[in-house]
Design a protein around this nucleic acid. Sequence first.
DNA 1: GCTGATCGATACGAAGTCGTACCGATACGC
DNA 2: GCGTATCGGTACGACTTCGTATCGATCAGC
Lengths: 204, 204
Amino acid sequence: MTSQAADRPDPVGASRRSKLTREREQEFFDAVIEQIGKYGYDALTMDGVAASTRCSKSTLYRQWRTKPQFVAAALRSRRRVGFADIDTGSLAEDLRQAARAVGEWSGRDHRLVQALGHAVVEDRELAQALREALIEPENAAIAEILRRGVERGEVTADHPALPYVTAQLFGVLRVRPIMEGRDADPDYLQRFVEAAVLPALGLD
Amino acid sequence: MTSQAADRPDPVGASRRSKLTREREQEFFDAVIEQIGKYGYDALTMDGVAASTRCSKSTLYRQWRTKPQFVAAALRSRRRVGFADIDTGSLAEDLRQAARAVGEWSGRDHRLVQALGHAVVEDRELAQALREALIEPENAAIAEILRRGVERGEVTADHPALPYVTAQLFGVLRVRPIMEGRDADPDYLQRFVEAAVLPALGLD
DNA sequence: GCTGATCGATACGAAGTCGTACCGATACGC
DNA sequence: GCGTATCGGTACGACTTCGTATCGATCAGC
């Protein structure tokens, strides 16, 4: 156990002895995420990130060897669950709130998934980072909501519609912009849950 | 009316007096579609198309001014409906068959939509071509199936789940590869229709 | 047939990108 | 404090791509 204390500016990678603070590092990652969401993975340039964050490319390439590895790191940095704390005691209400949460908070993230859609085919590390950072947490959050519903006896554990709830939710989220040219806002998603998801589950 | 008869090799653009036959033109388009589906829009290169079809870039740039216009033309060339002829007399059965058809035939096309997802944000013409060529026909085919169901009185015209059927179908189609790492094959889609779509419509 | 435009092939300029190398200046570790 | 590694800045080489230009060969139209 080294004397590497905790009241200093919290350098990244204690073993690497980098001068970058975690806040600084997060600036890089935010820039990456923003660029990709706006212009796509291919349009993301290391020069661009360096310029917009006023760091040098040397720094980026010192910390992360290549562009895909850099992006993967940025993705991992935002691993978090947006609606894991939903627990109203009613499956129907949980799903309604989840729908709203997905619509509000996934606006940027689903753009990210869309933008990375083809890049991940070619880079295994990128694909795994994407799954860990965005896909799995969402998956797990919905699964947890459903699990509690089953536990309370609101639906049977082998209800045929159960395995499709997550796909339904994120499916319409991603398809509406293409089909109708409008983003899937919270209202739309809640109406969808009300009209299609709950009835399929035999609720409401 | 000129003597420009019809027993000749059918040149492209009668007014342009091009020497390219329609078959030759279609070869270009096929190469474009294949490249995009495999490697994405950004990875598609004019040089690549020229090389793989053994034509010269001069030819491509003579006929289509820029890369987006070229791609848009290629998209328009494959405007067609894959399952417009489904009409079993039963809404439930129509939807089951549509699900299978979507799974079989959309394998390539939905890859295309995915690959073009971000490119269309920046090019208006490309976006419109994509809509006309792929989105609208699919939309219309499902709408027609639903319309007949309403006509036969199998569902009411204002059934709340009605507006979401198309989005659901294409939603899970596009999301399953990301969520589960597996393509949405015909079996999967039919199970989904059976378990979620039909119950939501009050059928079956 | 003759004329002229289009074809395929190739070379080229301009622009942009990745990743490396070099450079003082600064801040850390001892 | 002093050495040293990392920082930001920039220049660079190799490469790729778009779109244009050039050039002989070939095919259409009259």
